[in-house]
C-alpha cells in the first residue's frame, strides 16, 4: 500500500486509527499488532488477530514517526496493537512544541 498524506488508516483487529501526516512516495506495509491496516474507505477483509507479542498500544494524539522511512502517523483513536512499518515498530515522535503563535 502506498500511503497518501491525509489518508485515514484503520486497524481491522482493534480500535486503532491513524492519519498519515508524512509519507514517502512508495509502497509500505503498515501494521497494527502484526495485522495490516487499511484505508478507512476500503472494506476490510477479516484479517486474523492481534499478535500477543505486539501489544505495545498507541496513544491518542501522539505522533508516530519512522524517520528512516519518512513516515509519520497521527493516532486519532488509541488501540492495543503496536504500530509498525515494514515490520519495525514505529516510535513516538519526541514532542518539540512550538510556542503558541495564534
Amino acid at each position: 500500500m502506498k500511503p497518501r498524506i491525509g489518508q485515514t488508516l484503520v486497524s481491522p483487529v482493534d480500535s486503532t486509527t491513524v492519519v498519515v501526516i508524512r509519507s514517502p512516495d512508495r509502497d509500505l506495509e503498515i501494521t497494527c499488532g502484526g495485522v495490516d491496516m487499511a484505508p478507512k474507505d476500503i472494506p476490510l477483509a477479516s484479517a486474523g488477530a492481534l499478535d500477543p507479542e505486539l501489544m505495545g498500544g498507541s496513544m491518542l494524539g501522539k505522533r508516530y514517526a519512522a524517520e528512516e522511512l519518512g513516515l509519520e502517523l497521527l493516532c486519532t483513536k488509541a488501540g492495543k496493537g503496536t504500530l509498525a512499518a515494514n515490520g519495525v515498530p514505529i516510535p513516538i515522535k519526541a514532542a518539540k512544541p512550538l510556542p503558541a503563535s495564534d
Binding site: 498524506i5 491525509g6 492519519v19 501526516i21 491518542l60 494524539g61 501522539k62 505522533r63 497521527l74 514532542a95 512544541p97 512550538l98 503563535s101
Partner: peptide, 17 residues
C-alpha cells in the same frame, strides 16, 4: 481546504499539550 488547516494544526501543536 481541510488538508491545509489540519496539516497546520498537527504540524505545529501538541495534542492535549
Amino acid at each position: 481546504r481541510h488538508q491545509h488547516l489540519v496539516s497546520y494544526v498537527v504540524g505545529t501543536v501538541e495534542f492535549a499539550g
